[in-house]
């Protein structure tokens, strides 16, 4: 099942299906290793409800829900 990264619950994992959008933010997500096929895990949501922390390629990354919504992942 393909969902957006922002909808994962803490602890859930998914494989990146595609990254939507264009431009700087999109490029930055790719550079940080969010490429199709990579495994990504939702870790936690910040105390104020945004941003979120995810784990991929052995490190932790935080991004806003706005950006996470652009990342489609297939649940594993």
């Amino acid at each position: 099942m393909v969902v957006s990264l922002r909808d994962l619950r803490p602890g859930q994992q998914g494989r990146v299906d595609r990254v939507n959008g264009r431009g700087a933010i999109f490029k930055r997500l790719l550079d940080m290793g969010i490429t199709p096929g990579s495994l990504i895990e939702m870790r936690r949501v910040a105390p104020l409800g945004d941003p979120i922390e995810v784990r991929l390629r052995g490190y932790s990354l935080s991004l806003r829900k706005e950006e996470a919504a652009q990342i489609a992942v297939a649940l594993v």
Binding site: A24, I25, S62, L63, E67
Partner: peptide, 11 residues
Amino acid sequence: GDSPPFVMELP
């Protein structure tokens, strides 16, 4: 300008 992406590593 483009708001910089808040895509930040948590070291």
